[in-house]
Design a binder for these strands. Structure first.
Lengths: 338, 338
DNA sequence: CTGAAAGCGCTAACAA
DNA sequence: TTGTTAGCGCTTTCAG
């Protein structure tokens, strides 16, 4: 409640001096510093963030933009967020999660005027309208994800290409030759063109062909029911499929049930691998699912760093960071031993 | 990028007039209004949120305070958030998710200075230090949850008492007399005294006694392993238990596996009911879990309304809103028919 | 119905 | 080393 001026009066110094000790902007004698801090304590002084922002054009607040579409706030997303927030905090910034229209329409209202120093974009689509908006607004930003051509944009992303290759390597080493891929159909939704899906599909199709194997793609609707239906459809398309990649956590349970219902045992008859999922997800199932674990925390940290480097001018090079998911094989022994 | 002054110049009016048309604060002739809006469009004028906030002491931004502890960002939490954000948006506010220290230490920095008009507190503990901080800071706030004595505080919460009674009614009607309760042990963590756990335990103990039944409580560590261990411990404590309430989504899978491992079939030998969980959670399992579904969206909306009413002065009565979870019985038929 | 002007609380030259 | 002062961009009386 107390203003800087009041603190200055109380300490018998000028308002500038108070500002200097508050921000450490300039050297002030220990003696005056002491008087000032004492006055601040006595008056319970709190620096007014808004006034400071207006005068200095920086708030030390960054925003993680999250599209207000459906409820796709996955555990991995949550990891991003928490890790990025922690990192930001370590570097003297605050990170808030900001739900915004996926089209980027309500973006300018908030972002212009300097409420936030920069933003991190998540759930990026191949042609994401928000990057144009942000660019025009001249707001520093970093992507978690990549647009179709992001060579000139700062980003941090899962290396889906490598992730899929690694997945197929792993399964091929187990002897599999007939693959399936299950993911969500976002066409017709605001999230159409969701980059991870696009890259995973493309890589899957190409790599399976390169290997001289078969690959079938089916789309799953939400929930357990969607998973069961997907299993049915997959077996219709290729009843000899022996390995399937799922990229939709909430229907993996249904997928398993659907496979069982069709007389396939997991993993004896069909191997199932959960893609770009959280490590916790695999444990939710019985039998446990092998998982390509998304590096959520690492990416969150990197994204925060990338943006803050940009803001602080710490680094000038364009960050282009890709990290693949890591294979985590389900240890069925752990289940058996219990 | 354009300032109000520039717009005023362009339109040949004073800056005050521009402000009036921008905010609709005062009547302005259609003719001048037209000139002003034209100028705004031409100059791509965007009202500077920070300057406005400094001058008017309101930002129309509210924050949902989320404790930076562990990764307890459940699907239900996510529902709260999304629903509250939507409602806020409908009422002309923006809602951001703000990770803050559970002790409330870094709270005053941000909240004082009027960066946000008010806050919603979630993950409330029985004696939550943050309410004292907020009260002293004179920031309008609303709780999602309740402290021990929240009679004088505005809140919106799950009616855990009714939820537990309903759960036991349901199970008792099925003939069960020996109950178990599985939840997380938060003692020693910053979230110790987490109100939902406290109330659920208290009600469970009392109600089971009232009914002349037995009730055993065991604590589960995280993940699937925690759930399996909990199952084992529960059966040690009461090997004749026939109905168990779980209040920890990420270990319910393990719980099922643990029960199976001990030779109990679900639901034939033991009924399992997931408490205060999202509807999606029950579907993750096989067999599907019956669930007391948390009214996440409804509470989010109510919380946003409660806070905004307070801010806008729409309503003066202290909101005290309680809503129980709703029973959603797993239809095992759906599984069988697939 | 519109304009003039005094701030909101702080930052950052520039002086002293 | 500390003080003076001119803004930051907008809101809001109070006049006219």
């Amino acid at each position: 409640m107390a203003t800087m001026q009041q603190v200055a009066d109380r300490a018998g110094v000028s308002i500038a001096t108070v500002s200097f000790v508050v921000n450490g902007t300039k050297y002030v004698t220990p003696k005056t510093t002491a008087r000032v801090t004492a006055a601040m304590r006595e008056l319970k002084f709190r620096n007014n963030v808004v006034a400071r922002a207006l005068a200095s054009r920086r708030t030390r607040i960054i925003a993680l933009l999250f599209p207000t579409t459906g409820n796709r706030f996955s555990p991995t997303t949550s990891e991003f967020f928490m890790a990025a927030a922690e990192r930001a905090s370590e570097r003297g910034y605050h990170l808030v999660l900001w739900p915004v229209d996926p089209a980027g329409d309500d973006l300018d209202d908030l972002v212009s005027g300097g409420l936030v120093d920069g933003v991190i974009l998540m759930e990026v689509r191949m042609d994401d309208p928000r990057v144009a908006v942000l660019t025009e607004l001249q707001v520093p930003f970093t992507l978690i994800g990549r647009t179709r051509d992001s060579s000139a944009l700062p980003y941090v992303d899962i290396d889906f290409e490598t992730t899929i290759e690694d997945s197929l390597d792993h399964l091929a080493a187990l002897g599999h030759r007939r693959f399936g891929l299950v993911l969500e159909d976002l066409d017709g939704t605001p999230m159409a063109g969701y980059a991870p899906h696009q890259r995973v599909q493309d890589t899957f199709v190409r790599s399976v062909a390169d290997r001289g194997c078969t690959g079938s793609i089916v789309f799953a609707d939400g929930g357990s029911d969607g998973g069961r239906a997907a299993a049915r459809r997959l077996l219709e398309v290729d009843s000899d499929v022996t390995a399937v990649l799922v990229m939709k956590d909430d229907s993996s349970a249904g997928l398993l049930v659907g496979l069982y219902a069709a007389g396939r045992r997991v993993p004896e008859d069909v191997s199932v691998l959960s893609i770009a999922s959280s490590s916790a997800n695999g444990d939710q199932h019985y039998p446990r699912l092998s998982t390509m674990v998304a590096p959520g925390r690492e990416l969150g940290v990197r994204a925060a760093d990338a943006l803050i480097d940009q803001l602080d001018g710490t680094s000038v090079e364009l960050p282009h960071f890709l990290l693949p998911c890591e294979l985590r094989v389900a240890e069925s022994t752990a289940v058996a031993s219990s």
